[in-house]
Design a protein around this nucleic acid. Sequence first.
DNA 1: AAGCAGTTGTTAATATATTAACTATAATGT
DNA 2: ACATTATAGTTAATATATTAACAACTGCTT
Lengths: 217, 217
Amino acid sequence: MSDRRQISMAVVRRLPKYHRYLLELISNDVDRISSKELSEKIGFTASQIRQDLNNFGDFGQQGYGYNVKELYNQIGNILGLNETYNTIIIGAGNIGQAIANYSNFSKLGFTNQAIFDKNPKLIGLKIRDIAILDVEFLEDYLKKNNIDIGILCTPREQAQEITDTLVKNGVTAIWNFAPIDLQVPDNVVIENVHLSESLLTLTYRLNEPKLLHDIKK
Amino acid sequence: MSDRRQISMAVVRRLPKYHRYLLELISNDVDRISSKELSEKIGFTASQIRQDLNNFGDFGQQGYGYNVKELYNQIGNILGLNETYNTIIIGAGNIGQAIANYSNFSKLGFTNQAIFDKNPKLIGLKIRDIAILDVEFLEDYLKKNNIDIGILCTPREQAQEITDTLVKNGVTAIWNFAPIDLQVPDNVVIENVHLSESLLTLTYRLNEPKLLHDIKK
DNA sequence: AAGCAGTTGTTAATATATTAACTATAATGT
DNA sequence: ACATTATAGTTAATATATTAACAACTGCTT
């Protein structure tokens, strides 16, 4: 019996971290681990770890703990890493190029198939053997190729329009680096990487001690 | 009287978004806005907006709403944008270069003062007039220059060691792009940008409908 | 000038997330 | 084989975060 309760984002955001720590354990030849031991490494409570994992299945065994390799694979599957993903990058500026060059994603099963830009100076250049194409051809390209994830690295001004094109042509996942909140239908998932916002939370915390001393009440 | 209650990260992470939307309102010549109107734009509830802002002061006026420019400035101050920040980038790979090239941060008051790497092929090259220095000289540099934020873009293997050097020499804020959880003393603040983790939450959600259908119970 | 509509700041209620406690079970040692 | 220890899964308690309700106040209209 399935019960289909939606898993909270708080839980989902911890899953990749479990995945990462388990891989580290594997490379250290650790075969089994208890929620308590893992909690000491990863910094969540043992209780939280058991709660999190239990959302998806009974992966452990009482009196024993979790088999590291098995748990790693299970979490990989939960994260969808049993499949591979075709991506395209739109926007070959700083971030777009950095993502295109970054090789670690291919290890996880992501293959970048194309890069688009509107700058004539960039069109035709190659990044890791992938030519930068004219964004004019984006819609055409999407009709002919099966793309799972659009990686949006354009300036803010173009982001919504490109998004509309992606969505219209069947892309249902967008990794968004543009500093804007995109409007999409319910079936499309978006993950934002808002670098400026991230940086500003850092300056907030850098100044917080002073600040809390000053404010009202 | 101050009461110094620590503001929750949930609130802090919304502040930059208020800041961004308020700037947009300013550029659209909007003078005043109510929590209700803002809630429709930004997608938080009006109640949450009032609660969030009220952590820091009484910025609004009953029957009127909030003065956009004033609120923008207040939130800027809360985020520490009344000050400027000297940054250095450690690691001149894809991400390091992208951040170095990205000009938007300087508008917010961040000045990147130096870039470090250990690759002899990169040392000496310039990015936006800033030469890439040998990471051997990092400690020396930190002793002579006042750096507020270290932007860590090295591979995982070097990240903790560099962090230790930064911390030892007085850097109390680290913006970390390396896929690792850094160990630092309590007075040092860290903001992680874990791109792989971000991407994996996207694939999770892309596959969630299937997944929730299958799992136990 | 009075009353109405709008809106905040704040308190109360609800919902969500985290942590702790407990129960059942498996592994281990003697 | 039995007793002991370890540990997961699960339920209960607590803490946190979000949303709703409301009283106090402001600005606007007539």
